[in-house]
């Protein structure tokens, strides 16, 4: 059932911001990633999809140094600025935290940078609000604002729209696209929301412990591996990609457990 194309080098991938070669990661006794090779070009939006337990988050976490690989290399452009959006925050209600204070953690970002980042993500009205009082969608956009503070060249997002409704998901992807347009940053994200992802990404990577198939949304969606691993939702995903279909009305599709 493995697809023929294991690694597709995109012709326009001129300058890579990150190059992963033959990466293997073990967590405990389980081998989560094996022989993963992947590169992300400057300004490119790459989305990693895959079943639960396919190693998507582990791949992203190995890029920020939270997971130590036992083989392979991760090469980055010298002096690469990375913005990271975690899956969620462990925000206890006993921790008082305004949006502005959060954006100044762990380093003071300066008033102008904070205001700019909030405007970019459409959250400027939230500056003085408590993080705990925000809706899920608002909180994720604040996390995005924080990741944009240092004008990153690479934005890493770990299932940023998990738990958001279709409206919130669409708004979040619009904010990512706007950030890419303004900053020219590359985006590498893990996602469950197949419908929107496919239309908002330059390249899709289907992961199942290793890179099974990658390419344009059309290439991936028509692959045997995609049908085998993702299966039933494929026709709907293809339908969502029809021209003029706004992400706003796209249902947040979920991978089968």
């Amino acid at each position: 059932m493995k697809a023929g194309l294991k690694y597709v080098q995109r012709p326009e991938a001129a300058e890579s911001v990150v190059t992963i070669r033959a990466l293997s990661v073990r967590l405990g006794s389980a081998r989560v990633l094996r022989d993963v090779s992947l590169n992300v070009a400057a300004g490119e939006i790459v989305t990693i999809i895959g079943r639960n337990g396919s190693g998507k988050s582990t791949l992203l976490r190995s890029l920020i140094g939270a997971v130590t690989p036992d083989a392979g290399t991760i090469g980055t452009m010298p002096g690469l600025r990375v913005g990271y959006v975690p899956q969620s925050l462990a925000l206890d209600p006993t921790l008082p935290m305004t949006v502005t204070r959060f954006l100044n953690l762990p380093r003071r970002a300066g008033r102008d940078s904070v205001a700019q980042a909030l405007t970019r993500t459409g959250t400027d009205r939230l500056a003085k609000r408590q993080l705990a009082d925000l809706s899920g969608g608002q909180r994720q956009r604040v996390l995005l604002a924080r990741a944009l503070l240092n004008r990153p060249q690479l934005l890493l997002l770990d299932e940023p729209t998990q738990g958001l409704d279709a409206e919130g998901t669409a708004a979040f992807y619009r904010a990512i696209e706007a950030a890419r347009r303004d900053l020219g940053c590359a985006v590498l994200m893990v996602s469950h929301d197949l419908g929107v992802v496919m239309s908002a990404s330059d390249r899709i990577v289907l992961l199942d412990g290793t890179v099974v198939v990658q390419g344009s949304a059309a290439e991936v969606a028509s692959s045997d591996a995609y049908r085998a691993l993702i299966g039933d939702v494929a026709p709907e995903v293809t339908a969502l990609r029809s021209p003029g279909d706004t992400p706003r009305h796209a249902p947040a599709l979920r991978l089968a457990e």
Binding site: L89, A90, M97, R107
Partner: peptide
């Protein structure tokens, strides 16, 4: 202080910030 606050909110966020 700041590193601890960040790590309290998200250990991965702290790691990405270099602590």
């Amino acid at each position: 202080w700041n590193a601890l606050l960040t790590a309290t909110l998200s250990p991965d966020l702290a790691r990405a910030g270099g602590s």
